[in-house]
Amino acid sequence: MRNAETKSELSSRSQQDLFDYLLRLGDDRLVLGHRLSQWCGHGPILEEDLALTNISLDLIGQAKFLLELAGEVEGKNRSADDLAYLREAIDFRCLKLVEQPIGDYAYTIARQFLFDVYDYYQMEQLCDSKFEKLSAIAAKAVKEARYHLRHSRQWVLRLGDGTQESHRRIQTAFDEVWMYTGEMFEADDLEDRLLEEGLAADLRTIRTSWAALVHQTLVEATLTAPSDEQYMQSGSRKGFHSEYLGHVLSELQILPRSYPGAKW
């Protein structure tokens, strides 16, 4: 297929697929951006307040572009704000990984690192998507993802190879968060179809690169990678979420839900 510039060039099947795919990408970033923003003013060091706020801002900016594009692809006149503020939890497509509360700083860093690695490889591949509007978003996002990854990886090393307490905390965090990593790579027919058309990223190769960098980093940080042979959560991409998502949305959506159609 040649490069797809507008939705009229996409079959209605791919259009529906792409809409769902863009929600997956957008919702991950929106919800993780929300979680990170909860650190604002409460970080362990002023420099980290700045860094986490900055990363949150990047992620929400990416979510805005991705959801805008999703609305365009869907063709029902829904804006990024409509999609962010007026959907129910079961219509969100984010991972449970990003829904989890911020926990302590170790938990925030462990979750962020696992996501940043995923984000980086995903965006790197999406730079070559045949859907030009998506590849344009990815080209900007991959630069941001590289910086996010450098930040969280550095903190994994510091906490892993810092003090006994930090080592214990970050190890516990990885152990606790691990069961949410399985569904990052749950490829379904939808992604396979998009992949065939050159529109989506290949989760199988992302998984290989992700596992290599994660393991290499954990070893360097003197940490033990939890086993993949454990109970793994699944189903987020189909709308099966954790209970936390509803609470995130009740906070995030309060104003547009309370005053439908109002301008702010």
């Binding site: 909860q38 003013g41 002023l46 706020t53 801002l57 704000d81 702010w264």
Partner: peptide, 28 residues
């Protein structure tokens, strides 16, 4: 910071985040 998670649009959320980030920078 109390209103970041409840900002009424993505644009407002981003400008509030950027603002609060600036304040941390001023402190620095």
């Amino acid at each position: 910071g109390n209103w970041i998670t409840r900002a009424p649009s993505l644009r407002r959320k981003m400008s509030l985040l950027a603002k609060v980030q600036d304040e941390a920078g001023h402190g620095l």
